[in-house]
Amino acid sequence: MVFLSIVNYVRARGPDEIWRKRRIFKLAAHYIGRRRNCYSVAVRNVHRALVYATKARKLKKEDMKELWDTRITSACEQHNITRFSLKEGLERANIALDRKSLSDLACWEPRTFECLAAVAKQKLELDGFVDGVDKKHPTGVNLNLKDVMLDAWLKERKN
């Protein structure tokens, strides 16, 4: 630490010590024992808690991503398609849905998800990405996608 001015040498940091400590005690209000009553203990724990909170903001996003992936994987298994092919197929069909929307659809609108799985599979077959040797079709083969989907849109090759 570099001390550039005399101000840093003084021990008392102003008259508002109570308020400075109060700020820490308010954050430590839900602790138990000395951690909430003694300032010197409380401030250490509050600082640590704030560090945890900072790190957790990133971790929470990663956790949610993992959860969505789990849910999408399980929904894909029900429709006989892998998560990778679903992602690839939807991307080629210009359906830009992220993990959150896909998992929400899988959870709340299973029929919509079934159609998405069928569209992805159809697109992959049209693009020649899968060779059609795999006879395990997704469960949406009886949906007659050809009646609904625009040929031009499906056949448009992705660059």
Partner: peptide, 9 residues
């Protein structure tokens, strides 16, 4: 319950 889309730990 990992095979269900409603999975949550």
């Amino acid at each position: 319950g990992l095979h269900k889309p409603i999975y949550h730990p």
